[in-house]
Amino acid sequence: MRLTRFLLRRTAQGILVVWGVITLVFLLRFITPGSTIDFVAPLDASPELRQRLAEDLGLNKPIYVQYADYIVNLLQLDMGNSLLKGRPASDVIFARLPATLELAIAATIVAILFSIPLGVISATRRHQPVDYGATGFSLIGISTPNFWLGIMLILIVGVNLGWLPTSRRIIGFGPALELLVFEGRTIGIQVWFEHILLPSITLGTYFTALITRLTRNGMLEELGQSYVEVTRAKGLPETLVKYKHVLRNTMIPIITVLGLQMGTLIGGAVITESVFNWPGLGTLIIDAINSRDWPLIQGSLIVIGVGFVVINIVVDALYMYFNPQVTFE
């Protein structure tokens, strides 16, 4: 089948890209000024202790041996021990991953829920107040730095109105759901929702604005195509003309752009986490960089790179679903 073949091919390409990411991440340590051992060893360490530490960490082997070791270990999901926490880096990373995933997914849902209807309404009521409102919103939305938006939300909704908590993640979605299903208590979900609401709006606004803009412009362009007139001429109800035919074709460019913007989503998650003290990969990576925790830095970057590749394969598959003309040959 077309889709299976495409997925196989895309996965193979993805593995190549991930390999490139791993290599770059590995090399990052060698272009960084300062010897790694300086960050690991205590300040008053004797030369012998430094030597021992370097041997333990394999830092005195030739670079290609280190590289080979690194890849072999990675294949066993071993990213080394976090220098800071003394635990395997992979444990630390995967403990933080759900928080970031929850945030990214919540933001995506916020964005899709609001942007596509807004874009469609805006395009079908062109030059009416609702269109100007939507266009203005999307212009401001793509021009606002999300960390500042987050701070403003904290200021207004959290500090001044006192409606919602402004930082931390008390409970994960998984445990909250367990509480609901096994004990019938909604408090978990409620607390989870209250905490994730502001961060997901913060992260989602840029995308809401971007997709609104794309949907509106795409719908307007698509509505001018001849087939729309033909579809009307054969007596199809207007709702079907707009949603089955026009919106479906508008999705094609939207998906392309979304695929290219996935890096923005991940980068935005990093900074949103920092604003809301959200214990995800983003805050982890900033801490790791500040303390030169190499295994953690490399591991997080690789996980993010893999996540990006996976998202892109999904986006491409969606693209293919909406656009039968694509063969990816």
Partner: peptide, 24 residues
Amino acid sequence: RGLRGTSFSMIFQDPESSFNPSLT
């Protein structure tokens, strides 16, 4: 609209652009 397609219908000039490219 109820008459379109059933009482009148229309053939258009450019067949290539008169079909929605993403539906069979």
